[in-house]
Write a protein that binds this DNA or RNA. Structure first.
Lengths: 233, 233
DNA sequence: TAGTGGTCTAGACCACAAA
DNA sequence: TTGTGGTCTAGACCACTAT
């Protein structure tokens, strides 16, 4: 994809400070000429930069560089796994619990599967640079993901499903709220029961529309921050 | 814009259940023919639906309808104001405090303006159907927004800035976390000090790149939920 | 009025999914 | 193999900004 490559080039240029003097990108026309691609590619590349919050556009005026303060924050939109998100830090995952259970009504409804379907129930605790970050309670439909062992669960489960199983993960619904920590989650986060937590409920789907994973993650309120870029129209 | 109109039509069709039987939209080619527009328009329209989480695309297969459980949830990405977001409910805004102050160093750094710049400092409390939803602490640069009175602050400030002042609001950076409520915020939310809260810090910019508004909003953990759609690539 | 981003068309060809 | 979404081009014209 030409436009993805162009986006990468422009991203590097921005990081290099190549456009620092003017604070804006070359015009569409100039980019078309410089890189020998069509306007379609240029606009597609730019829209990637916009999505990442690197650039904002003003019709009739130009494409301006925008620096955002996402440092140390996690993205809610680009699910690339915590490890990739917080690179440069030591992210460790500990598997607290791992078993296969038979879906009761509650779980079946949550997982959009039949009661009795075998599902993995996994509890994982994550830490960043030695500080607890999150506790995750997650279910995987075993009919879709046949094998998960402790070693696999210590790494990126999404990565495993994509690369090793060859399944196409497509999208996820997330619901985000705050609540008091349960005693159990508090212990794993080295906090007190009743302390606040950001809670993210996550339903993940394959490209065929099947839900394969449902999870609830409790985040350490002292360290976890999320960022979001909103376009206002 | 043809593609925006087409998106609206398709959105209605989806709500009507016109595509219920197959669970998917007509093919791109069919839409091109049916609506007499180019593929460009069709794809732009579809990408709006994708952004809203109404549809997901599978290359080589089709465009599938996707229902998400955003009911009662607020969006972090599409900042249209709480009132529009939660329509069907009675959203009330009470202005707790409103004054003009001179930016000290801390505020000037936060607002990216010079110390001494006059800024509005406003505290607002919102309720939905009589239940407290949020407490907002917000600053507006008075050099950009010259006049805010209590009546204006009771309504949509963004709407006022856009429609009445004719300024172009472009984008916002948000940081999201959880923390314990202060005593003051707890009182306004009818909760206890130390109770959890989702906290959203918001920096809003005009299309010329100027920041005009910074705010911190504390949400009632018993009622406030946010949703987010993540695409996984 | 000139510069620059946004919309739209027509058409070619590629990549992936499903039968 | 056929259907369907994804990429890419060339070119016309519109809408907004800045001067």
């Amino acid at each position: 994809m030409k436009y993805q490559e162009l986006a990468n080039i422009l991203k590097e240029n921005i990081d290099d400070g190549s456009y620092h003097e003017t604070g804006k990108l070359p015009t569409e026309e100039q980019l078309v000429e410089q890189y020998g691609v069509s306007k379609y590619c240029v606009r597609n590349a730019i829209s990637i930069l916009v999505e990442f919050g690197l650039v904002y556009l003003v019709q009739g005026s130009g494409m301006y560089i925008r620096e955002s303060k996402r440092e140390g924050c996690m993205s809610l939109r680009n699910t690339r796994g915590v490890t990739a998100e917080l690179k440069g830090h030591s992210v460790k995952t500990r598997v607290v619990h791992l078993e296969i259970i038979s879906a009761d009504e509650r779980i079946a409804s949550r997982m959009k599967c039949k009661t009795g379907t075998p599902v993995y129930y996994i509890i994982r605790a994550r830490s960043v640079d030695g500080v607890p970050l999150s506790v995750e309670y997650t279910y995987y439909n075993q009919e879709i993901v046949p094998v998960i062992d402790e070693k696999i669960a210590e790494g990126s489960l999404f990565g495993y499903i994509k690369k090793d199983l060859g399944l196409n993960i497509s999208f996820a619904d997330k619901i985000l709220r705050a609540d008091k920590l349960t005693k159990e989650a508090a212990e794993l986060l080295e906090l007190e029961a009743g302390d606040p937590a950001v809670i993210v409920e996550d339903d993940a789907y394959l490209s065929n529309g099947q839900m394969f994973n449902a999870s609830v993650v409790y985040y350490n309120y002292k360290t976890a921050k999320f960022f979001e870029l909103a376009e206002i129209k």
